[in-house]
Each structure stands twice: as C-alpha cells, then as structure tokens.
C-alpha cells in the first residue's frame, strides 16, 4: 500500500510539471519545470531499486542538461519573450496524434500478458553494473565513449564563433 502511494505521488510529480513543460507560454518556466520531472523520474528509479541509475539521472539530467538548456535560452533571447507565440498552427493535429499514439500503446500494454517473474528485486549495485559494462557490454561502452568524444568536438566546432 505504501509502495502504491509512493508510486502515485512520484507519477504526479513527474507528469504535472511535464504538462507545464509542453504547454507553458514562458520558455523559462518550461525549462525550470523540467527539474521536478527529472527528479520524479529519479524517484521512480529508486522505487525500481535502481539506485545507481537514479544518481546518474540527478547528476546529468537535473544537473547538466537543465543548466545547458537555461544557458541557451539566456543566449538566444530573441525568441524567448513571453509575448512571442510559442506554438505553431498544428496544435489540434499534434494533440490528436499524441492522444491516438497513447491510446494504441495503452491498448497494447493491457492486452499483452507480460512474463513477469515473481522474484523480489536482487541487490543491484554500482559494482555489478560496472562489471557488466566492462565484460558483456564492452563494445557498447567503447562506442559510447567514442560518441561522447565526437559530440564534444562537434559541439565545439558548430558553436564556435567564426572570425
């Protein structure tokens, strides 16, 4: 019962700011509403006993990406005024598409019998994940590090002021 209450509270903490993110006229308010959304998702990870992923989520999403977005909003002040129209003319179409996709996915979720195991959560630890990264998923790990390097160089070159 306590788990269900925690889940409902965390889901509301995630979804209500997410609605503000996609509907607010003020872009800074949208960016700041991302923070409770990410923290709610962090709580969901803790509820799923994935503490390491939760820690990384706080560090990278709630910390780095939100600050990055706020910086870019600050540097591109021409498009961020409250009186500037923030939505395009396809709001009804977009809402219809999102609602229909959600309906279809929910239909699939409820009509599938998932092979859920009744076993309780094992003890996940950062050491287990690190061992998995360097044994079974070492190719994924290396390719990700390459992508990080390339995106670092690419972002620097693209954003550089050309004189």
């Amino acid at each position: 019962m306590g788990e269900l209450a925690a889940f409902i509270i965390l889901a509301l903490v995630t979804l209500i700011p997410a609605v503000v993110v996609v509907t607010s006229k003020n872009i800074v308010r949208s960016a700041l509403s991302l923070i409770p959304t990410f923290l709610g998702v962090t709580g969901i990870y803790i509820l799923l006993s994935a503490e390491f992923v939760a820690g990384i989520q706080v560090l990278i999403y709630a910390g780095a990406i939100t600050v990055l977005i706020l910086f870019v909003i600050m540097l591109t002040e021409g498009g961020t005024g409250v009186r500037v129209r923030q939505v395009n003319e396809q709001v009804p179409l977009g809402a219809t598409a999102a609602v229909w996709l959600g309906f279809l996915i929910l239909l699939v979720i409820f009509r599938t019998t998932w092979p859920v195991t009744g076993a309780g959560p094992p003890e996940y630890s950062a050491a287990t994940i690190g061992t998995a990264f360097l044994t079974d998923y070492v190719v994924v790990f290396e390719v990700t590090s390459l992508v990080l390097l390339v995106s670092l160089i690419g972002a620097t070159i693209i954003a550089r002021r050309e004189d």
Binding site: L15, A18, V21, V22, I27, T37, G79, G94, A98, I105
Partner: peptide, 16 residues
C-alpha cells in the same frame, strides 16, 4: 506512455 505522449505533443507543436 503518458510521459512519451506529452513529449511527442511538445515536439509536434512547439516553435522554439
């Protein structure tokens, strides 16, 4: 699913 659909709505309707 709900979070994904909210994100999709934002991507489809925002100008910024």
């Amino acid at each position: 699913t709900l979070l994904f659909c909210l994100g999709l709505f934002g991507v489809l309707t925002r100008r910024n």
